[in-house]
Write a protein that binds this DNA or RNA. Structure first.
Lengths: 298, 298
DNA sequence: CCGGTTCTTTGACTACAGTCAAAGATTATG
DNA sequence: CATAATCTTTGACTGTAGTCAAAGAACCGG
């Protein structure tokens, strides 16, 4: 990766300062005007019932601290705390009717605040602002995502493949049979590799590389979680897989894809892959691609 | 102004949440790792010597709170506090050598943090992010600026005209004579109007409207502070002036401008003004424009 | 069913952020 | 030149955020 230029850093920090101090601070102040900010945030995060444990990990809070805040909300009649049905060690916390009303009021105020800020702009300017914010957020999310090799049998790898299979199954008219998935040993150790993309600790994408013939590798199951699409993550996964393939001495990479996945095909084409005749008879592929690698990078 | 659509509000809040929690929080945590966040911020704001009073108003801090923080920084040897030369009630605070070193280190760390965040992106993506952030910041600043009518003799109005005169004087080869400025009574009450644009309480632009003939008004001294340019503020001022003119029953607006101000001319043209022969012999104008208003808005 | 682990609660803290009011020093103003 | 206004300092607070450790209850694996 290229070193980050000082211009980019300066611009980033300028925006960061401006936004955090001016808008973010305002927001926090607004949110926390009736009750402590921590409690207000908690109210936000309790959707329709979560365990304290999940809140604790999601918000990275101290167990004692969280316990007390939850109790405060309970005595205020905003949440109901009960023993979790599946595991009596856990506590399940959910909004009461009063809590839902309170949350709605909080949202209304936050909306009004946002609307007040946007009020001075014309519709065209609001459109531009929305687009710029969307672009910035997508790129910031992408920047925060890491791609790491994991063992093909690792839980994260299996979780991704499960999600992939379910996704494809729902999308293809003919459905998807899990027997077509790579087996762990095909993508572990000498045989191949498996990459998982993580956003804030959660797997949001994957890609597999396996040996097809000597010096010929195959890419499989390049997949991105629906929440993480349109960020440019697939391309990042592709780059990681190609770098790995080059390091392993593969001269050629092949892959197959399905006619219905038009974005995927466009990505492969723009990534230097060209369509070739079928090289194998996977059940679900109907387009085949190949790319010649330029050799391992020293 | 149009009502703000729920899409715009939702998108704004989504970005706000993401950015404040993810990036802003990180930044604060980083900045405040050695000393309290308040003190770290203070160190940032003390450039080359300011008065406590200025810090107090700029950061909106309690006087006692600020006094104590400053003293803490002083005992740590980071700042020097002395009686202000002009006014012995005031305290002048400035960085010591150690303070400057500390600040530099703080900046280095913040830069490293930003660079770390941008590291996962390609140069093209960083460019796009920078541009999106710049656009968003400009629009947010514009949204936060208010335009208000003030008396032509008000201090803010005079301050703007002074800045305008100095600006023009530096830009025109022939200089600028202050006698060409409108007199307060020409733009007050029945005679005319004067608008000032405020960003966070500070005047950053102005524009004057005065009566030239019955039903014919003239726009003068439409000016934007250099720090607030390229935000679209001039257009906002123009709109405010035109609305005011229409309300006062003017059917035609005229103005003159200088050949060297090409952006200004482009703005007037795109705003519906067309070039006309000289209607008066102001010393400094050499292009004349006119716009026919559509009448007062009910 | 025993030992280790997980989850929550409680007690006991610490530090930071921020407010309010009184008082002293200095400057501006009628 | 007396009085009001301004600025800073100090004392005395409050509330929020957050940490750490101990202990009890429930679960899990062998």
């Amino acid at each position: 990766m290229d070193p980050v230029s000082t211009q980019h850093v300066a611009e980033f920090r300028r925006f960061n300062r401006y936004f955090t101090r001016r808008i973010g601070a305002l927001d926090d102040h607004y949110l926390g005007q009736d009750r402590p900010l921590g409690e207000a945030r908690l109210l936000f995060e309790i959707g329709e019932g979560v365990s304290l444990r999940e809140l604790r990990t999601r918000l990275a809070l101290d167990a004692g601290y969280l316990s007390r805040m939850a109790k405060t909300l309970q005595t205020q009649g905003l949440v109901r705390i009960s023993v979790h049905p599946d595991d009596s060690r856990l506590r399940r916390v959910e909004l009461t009717r009063a809590g839902r009303i309170e949350l709605k009021e909080q949202n209304r105020r936050a909306d009004a605040l946002a609307a007040g800020l946007l009020d001075g702009l014309t519709t065209a300017q609001r459109d531009r602002l929305t687009e710029a914010m969307g672009t910035a957020q997508r790129l910031l999310r992408l920047a925060a995502i890491t791609v790491a090799p994991v063992d093909g049998a690792a839980p994260d790898a299996r979780a991704c493949l499960d999600a992939y299979a379910a996704d494809i199954d729902a999308r293809f008219p003919e459905g998807f049979d899990r027997s077509d998935l790579v087996r762990p040993e095909e993508v572990s150790g000498e045989a191949g590799a498996f990459f998982v993309a993580y956003e804030e600790g959660r797997p949001v994408g994957c890609g597999a590389l396996r040996r097809l013939e000597p010096r010929v590798g195959e890419l499989r199951h390049v997949w991105v979680h629906p929440d993480a699409r349109r960020l440019g993550l697939a391309r990042r996964l592709l780059t990681a897989l190609e770098t790995e393939a080059a390091a392993r001495g593969f001269a050629v990479l092949r892959l197959d894809t399905h006619a219905s996945l038009t974005e995927a095909q466009a990505m492969y084409r723009s990534g230097g892959y060209r369509e070739i005749p079928p090289y194998a008879d996977h059940v679900y592929g109907d387009h085949w691609f190949e790319k010649r690698l330029s050799g391992p990078v020293s």
